[in-house]
Design a protein around this nucleic acid. Sequence first.
DNA 1: CCAGTTACGCTACGAGTCGTAGCGGAATCG
DNA 2: CGATTCCGCTACGACTCGTAGCGTAACTGG
Lengths: 214, 214
Amino acid sequence: MHPRTSFTAVTSPKRAGRPRSAAADRAILDATRAALAEVGWGGLTLGDVAARAGVAKTTLYRRWAGKNELVVDALAALFEEQLDLPDLGGLEADIQGVVLRFAELIERPETRTALMAVVAEAAQDDALRLRIREAIVDRQKHLVLLGRRRAQQRGELPPDKAEDPARDDLIFDVIAGAVVHRVMVSSGPVDREWALRLARLLVDGLGALHLPPP
Amino acid sequence: MHPRTSFTAVTSPKRAGRPRSAAADRAILDATRAALAEVGWGGLTLGDVAARAGVAKTTLYRRWAGKNELVVDALAALFEEQLDLPDLGGLEADIQGVVLRFAELIERPETRTALMAVVAEAAQDDALRLRIREAIVDRQKHLVLLGRRRAQQRGELPPDKAEDPARDDLIFDVIAGAVVHRVMVSSGPVDREWALRLARLLVDGLGALHLPPP
DNA sequence: CCAGTTACGCTACGAGTCGTAGCGGAATCG
DNA sequence: CGATTCCGCTACGACTCGTAGCGTAACTGG
């Protein structure tokens, strides 16, 4: 296997020789996010990142295979924090909460300029696509399962007849896709009112959108 | 104003001198799509496009400011074809139909590799973002309005109390976002079953997903 | 303390792309 | 015909890429 770790400093058990600097890892990923926020994906050069991080350009290439992998790891750090789903007392409120929380991550400048870019690159790179799923997407997915079970315990949704993973996948695509499209394409804010309307649509269907927004 | 037209050969009224070759325009845009499908956004070079199209590289720069603008125009041609919404007899079927139709455009190789890339670039380029909306996104949006009015005439949705453009914007973000997320991130197929489940979810809410898929 | 091993910073390099300039010739208008 | 605009071609400096080579730093096991 290649010496490239490519995933943030997985300090393997115990090896001989000088260990990799964890500080350099953090500095590089921080510099990557900062550069993305300033110059965007297209303007990002690895030489610039190295200069900002205070490391040699060769150090970058020793750890990451290229721009794609580096940026995925830099973004992954943003999504790494544990994602909780506070119980807000009802399905609608729970959905609204998770939408607002997810939007906070998407609306950051680094995310806006880079997330779609790596997704586009992943269309022709299976390994990259897998990595994005592991490091970013799947971190959010369990929230759907959690929220649905909670709603079933409350009696807001009927109990399962059979396990149906495709159903949760659909719900996730709808929620995540709607937020991403709202932010990236429509360039509109994801505020409490928008999140509430989305939650109502999901819970009660299109008919619910004809009620006045409180 | 700059001599760059940047939008497909808007042959202005009547000017002196040699006119721009419309054939060159078509050849360039075709070559751009072919190259995108082969090498993706990251591997696309304007020199390669020029060679494929059989034109000089300088001709490209005389018409488009750069990679972003060229690709947007190349993609726009795919979305330019007529957008009808055949009446399938019910709201659910209509939604299913438009989802399948939209997915056909998104699932093409050129679209998969390039659409998200230009959206990412547009995060830092207001003009580009506006252009994407005009040439690609808004072409689809009126289908939402059309489908909703049809459903209201059928009595499937309550009539409007007041005009509410934000409501149609939301519906559009949900449908388009879900399809894009399904294709680009989850890498799953948008087949008739998936489209039907999405339509059910939108019409009747989350509870409808617990019925068996016919 | 001393080899062995691995990581780091630095410099240099060929290869490739970018975007532009300058030229001669081709097409169209008045 | 003259003016105007476009096209193809060549050439160019500037930049980024990704790698190689070297001396040095840090850490491990004997």
